[in-house]
Nucleic acid binder design. Structure first.
Lengths: 246, 246
DNA sequence: CGAATAGTGTCTATAAGACAGTATATC
DNA sequence: GATATACTGTCTTATAGACACTATTCG
């Protein structure tokens, strides 16, 4: 076993990745927001081969020089498209196969992000000439996205819906101050189902994750208390799911 | 934009992955089983650089010729180490960074598998001279695994513990026929906590996921009914977590 | 019979759903 | 006052935990 007599240093010095057949590896992000009472996803129109002209999830290759971790790559992509640096970002799954990209064996690590649409500034670069918010339902029903992005979007959507049943994730889709009704509406939009008002308020308030800001949202009716999240960044997990109407 | 005037065919013909800096991409599997009333994980001792001689999770590179999907790569690795083809296999997360592997930027897609220890035959190849079941707690407390495998194991363990609170996953660690007490014990070992017997039996039986086989497990006491899972492969999700003692 | 493990009856506790009622703003 | 939305009281329901009880086997 001559190989094993090499020191690790010698081994590493003689190692060259270009001698191996490796897959392409990229990161794609499903950026969700709520617009016009619907869950929307950010899509970019591809300005380059392959799948030129098709709508796709924003994403791209890892920059071996600039990115130190996968999460970094995801944050960088998020920043490039939305101008926003921090928001809720969660890794969902990786998709890899011989034929998902015509260039060859490829793996993509999919993330989803939640952002408040009001705070962002859509931007685009030379690789994607158009950027747009599109309702998730519309995409899933009638848009053929580039690569396997329909499947990726579906998985991210499932993950989001699943987690909304037992976490406080939707706070990440709202501005800093919001009312309980606004929060409930956000839950309902994601779950695509109504939630009983009293149950919802009890659940959220008992969890002790919000604090009153002291301000009120006024309108042509009784003003509502405004809240903010108590520990920004922490996501509360309930031990029981929201179940919806019986 | 001359680039965009290329046809996709021409683009693909001129595309060569070796012109790009790409990360290494691999798959690692945390294979869990229950042995001697403890959750164990399968480790291999590395027989090659890097991290030669260190214990590691089984894994390896994608074989661009043989593997059609990531899941395929995972199943192949599982088969190579255990001789088992099908068992419960779930993708957990991908870990990627500049420094997790001394050879350079690398990404690994981590899976966990659940198998019945009784049904497997440990095997090893020239790349790993030793294969062993080791209690998860022991590894986490006192073993420095290769690369970032401690972190990967930890994440897989967390995921397993988390899911066991609201699914029927542990059935995948048992032989085809088992008693409710055996199932409960498996849950308890994973959760590292006791479960109230009546609650457990009610929960499992009410979920209607098991069927009596008609056989009994005998011993030096009252015989116990043997059950098998009703829909092999489907994992039941409860809408409430097991909560443990109050 | 005793020991051991299987399996049940039933009370309490917790948190969700249902739904009607009250509160407070604007116009 | 009418309308609209905020917010609460309280009953029912579902399911988990506690714990004592009964059942069935072996030796």
């Amino acid at each position: 076993m001559a190989k094993n007599q090499l020191s690790e240093r010698d081994y590493l010095q003689s190692y060259n990745i270009h001698n191996y057949d490796v897959p392409l590896t990229s990161v794609d992000i499903t950026i969700f927001t709520v617009l016009d009472n619907a869950l929307n996803v950010l899509l970019v129109k591809r300005a380059q081969h392959p799948a030129l002209g098709k709508w796709a999830l924003p994403g791209g290759f890892i920059d071996l020089k600039k990115d130190r971790t996968l999460e970094h790559t995801a944050q960088r992509k998020l920043k490039e498209k939305t101008g926003v640096r921090t928001s809720y970002l969660e890794q969902v799954a990786s998709f890899g196969s011989k034929q998902r990209d015509p260039r060859g064996w490829s793996v993509t690590v999919a993330y989803f992000a939640l952002i408040d649409a009001a705070e962002i500034q859509l931007t685009h670069d030379e690789r994607s000439e158009e950027v747009a918010w599109v309702p998730v339902k519309k995409v899933l029903n009638s848009t053929k996205l580039a690569f396997d992005h329909n499947a990726i979007l579906e998985r991210c959507y499932e993950r989001l819906q699943g987690k909304v049943q037992y976490t406080s994730l939707p706070v990440n889709l709202l501005p800093e101050e919001f009312t309980l009704s606004e929060l409930q509406s956000t839950f309902e939009i994601i779950l695509d189902s109504t939630i009983e008002k009293k149950s919802f308020r009890r659940r959220i308030l008992d969890a002790d994750i919000l604090q009153e800001t002291g301000n009120m949202r006024t309108g042509s009716n009784r003003p509502a208390k405004l809240y903010r999240v108590q520990n920004q960044g922490e996501n509360f997990m309930f031990s029981r799911n929201i179940e919806g109407p019986r």
